[in-house]
Amino acid sequence: MELKQLYREIVNEHNLHPTHKGTMENPDLVLRGVNPSCGDDITLQLRVQDDVITDAKYDGSGCAISQASVDMMADQIIGKKKDEAIKMAGTFVGMIKGEVTDEESIEALDEAAALQDVAHMPARVKCAVLGWHTMQEMLEHPEKALNQTNE
């Protein structure tokens, strides 16, 4: 898919009309993810009950690819178990880096698989993986992401 088509068919919708953008009340985990080269800056918030992600929201700003990617990610991980979400992050990052190419793994990413062609745009890889990296970091190292305002 060429870049303009990718924007028009996938990215713009999530960037201009995001489903999961906003602030969550009392999230269990909160982590800021920053991409210094672009200035992408998100704060991801997760609610986790019995090892299942029951809600995900993000706030912040950045380029359309970073924002659309995290919005799509939120769609995909809500309702998933923590280890499933971590596995998906591995698949997504692998896909974007061009290391994971088998269709079966990629299909598991559902809509997020549409970003596969970012693999051909090295300058935008960091934008696409920012949300997934942040999510993986907070699930694997929850001590870095504990919500300080929670009792």
Partner: peptide
Amino acid sequence: GVHPHDVSSVLNDDHVCVRAGH
């Protein structure tokens, strides 16, 4: 409404090289 990195990427699609960032 358009992040500079997206401006640069879209322009690159038209073979225009401009810098974006800080």
